[in-house]
Lab assay of single mutants.
Amino acid sequence: VDYIVEYDYDAQHDDELTIRKGDIIKNVKKLEEEGWLEGELNGKRGMFPDNFVKEIK
């Protein structure tokens, strides 16, 4: 499942992704941690907030 970024987010920890509006995040999975998703961007896998992105259908 792929998501498109709607709002910029700067990573706060090493396991998070810095994302920018218009980025496409690939292979996204829901995490047990409420409010977070995990996906791949530019060869890096990491977490990001689910309210900054929208699923591409």
Rank of each mutant, 00 (worst) to 15 (best):
V1S: 15
V1L: 07
D2M: 15
D2V: 11
D2T: 14
D2Q: 15
Y3M: 05
Y3Q: 02
Y3H: 02
I4K: 06
I4T: 04
I4S: 10
V5N: 01
V5P: 01
V5Q: 01
V5S: 03
V5W: 02
V5A: 06
E6V: 15
E6M: 14
Y7T: 14
Y7W: 09
D8G: 05
D8M: 08
D8T: 06
Y9E: 00
Y9R: 15
Y9P: 01
D10I: 13
D10A: 13
D10H: 12
A11P: 11
A11Y: 02
A11E: 04
A11V: 02
A11Q: 13
A11W: 02
A11S: 15
Q12K: 13
H13L: 12
H13R: 14
H13S: 14
D14S: 13
D14Y: 14
D14M: 08
D15W: 11
D15K: 14
D15S: 12
D15N: 12
D15G: 12
E16N: 03
E16D: 06
L17G: 01
L17Y: 01
L17V: 02
L17M: 08
L17E: 00
T18K: 03
I19K: 00
I19Y: 02
I19F: 08
I19P: 00
I19V: 04
R20E: 05
R20D: 01
R20I: 07
R20W: 04
R20T: 08
R20P: 00
R20F: 06
R20V: 09
K21Y: 07
K21P: 06
K21I: 09
K21N: 06
K21L: 06
K21R: 10
G22T: 07
G22W: 08
G22V: 01
D23T: 05
D23G: 04
I24S: 03
I24Q: 05
I24K: 04
I24F: 04
I25K: 01
I25D: 00
I25Q: 00
I25H: 00
K26A: 10
K26M: 06
K26H: 13
K26D: 03
N27F: 10
V28Q: 01
V28Y: 02
V28P: 02
V28L: 02
V28D: 00
K29A: 11
K29H: 10
K29D: 11
K30Q: 09
K30S: 11
K30L: 10
K30E: 08
L31K: 08
L31H: 09
L31F: 10
E32P: 10
E32T: 13
E32M: 10
E32A: 10
E32R: 12
E32D: 11
E33K: 14
E33H: 08
E33G: 10
E33P: 08
E33L: 13
E34K: 13
E34P: 09
E34D: 12
E34Y: 07
E34L: 12
G35D: 06
G35H: 10
G35Q: 05
G35R: 06
G35L: 04
G35P: 06
W36N: 02
W36H: 04
L37K: 05
L37A: 07
L37V: 07
E38T: 10
E38I: 14
E38N: 12
G39V: 00
G39S: 00
G39A: 02
G39F: 00
E40I: 10
E40A: 07
E40S: 12
L41N: 06
L41I: 09
N42Q: 09
N42T: 07
N42G: 09
N42I: 04
N42K: 12
N42L: 10
N42A: 10
G43Y: 05
G43T: 06
G43N: 11
G43L: 06
G43K: 09
K44P: 01
R45W: 09
R45H: 08
G46Y: 01
G46F: 02
G46K: 03
M47Q: 13
M47K: 10
M47V: 10
F48G: 00
F48T: 01
F48I: 15
P49E: 06
P49T: 09
P49H: 15
P49M: 14
D50K: 15
D50F: 10
D50M: 09
D50V: 07
D50S: 14
D50G: 05
N51T: 15
N51P: 03
F52H: 12
F52Q: 03
F52L: 12
V53F: 02
V53M: 02
V53Y: 03
K54F: 04
K54D: 09
K54M: 08
K54H: 12
K54Q: 08
E55K: 03
E55D: 04
I56D: 07
I56G: 02
I56A: 03
K57I: 15
K57T: 15
K57M: 15
K57A: 15
